[in-house]
């Protein structure tokens, strides 16, 4: 059985069909790319899968469990975490605290224990800090842990967002343009990092990206969206040669 199963997912915004009958089946540890021109509906897929939007029709399952209608935070605790296209860090929190916030849902303790400073407060806080240290270490952000997230350079903010998403212990990680605004060297490093965390954390990854070198370089399978519909899917090699894809990107005349 597939880990994430998406069936006939559609979303209409006041008459505009942003997504039509989107189908997806992600096997465990797969790394799949979602590409398409601007406005093709890629981020809508993410917003539907994370519960930000309610689908007009269709449904989706994680490990056989239907997640339709759950609130975003409930979906996160079922095992889907994401990053955002336009970076949404907690700007006035430290790098360290940004990661610790995402630990909250699975390692919290009662409010009374915090207020009374009972031993379990210290125990759980230590545990949360420990995990945050490990993640920051992996993402090479440990020496910046006390800086405010808003003061980090752009590339590091992107990395921190991925670290924060990982802190939420996802089974499926959704990355929305993780390489946006990065130079080729940073993109290359990011590619390695994504491949590495997949192995390390046993992750299944779905990523949206405009940088073709990244998508072609690490994705095993690519899905192409245009005008809210899947127009092609397959291995990077197949996608490169697909005339409909080339058409969608370069305009119909080029076909």
């Amino acid at each position: 059985m597939a880990l994430l199963e998406v069936k006939q997912l559609s979303k209409t915004f006041g008459g505009l069909e942003a997504l039509k009958n989107f189908e997806l089946s992600l096997e465990k540890k797969e790394l799949v790319g979602l590409i398409g021109p601007n406005g093709a509906g890629k981020t809508t897929v993410f917003n539907l899968l994370t519960g930000v939007y309610k689908p007009t029709s269709g449904t989706f399952y994680l490990e056989g469990k239907c997640l339709l209608g759950l609130k975003p935070h409930q979906i996160t605790s079922c095992g889907i975490a994401r990053t955002f296209q336009n970076i949404r860090l907690f700007g006035d929190l430290s790098v360290f605290d940004n990661v610790r916030v995402a630990n909250h849902w699975y390692s919290s303790y009662p409010v009374a224990n915090a207020v009374l400073r009972l031993p379990s407060y210290f125990k759980y806080e230590r545990r949360m800090s420990q995990r945050a240290y490990e993640l920051l270490e992996i993402f090479n952000l440990l020496d910046k842990k006390d800086e405010l997230a808003k003061n980090l350079p752009y590339g590091e903010q992107r990395r921190l967002e991925i670290a924060r998403a990982l802190a939420a212990k996802p089974k499926v990680l959704l990355l929305d343009e993780p390489a946006a605004g990065m130079n080729p060297l940073e993109t290359k490093e990011l590619m390695n990092l994504i491949s590495w965390i997949r192995e390390e954390f046993n992750l299944t990854i779905l990523l949206i990206e405009h940088d073709m070198s990244l998508v072609m370089g690490i994705c095993e399978r690519i899905i192409v969206l245009d005008h809210g519909e899947i127009i092609a899917q397959g291995t990077p090699e197949e996608i490169k040669r697909n005339p409909r894809v080339i058409g969608a990107y370069l305009g119909e005349e080029a076909v």
């Binding site: 935070h73 996160t76 849902w105």
Partner: peptide, 12 residues
């Protein structure tokens, strides 16, 4: 700081 991000990180 960011309600949507907080919700996405599992905060109710």
């Amino acid at each position: 700081e960011d309600e949507i991000a907080a919700e996405a990180m599992g905060i109710n």
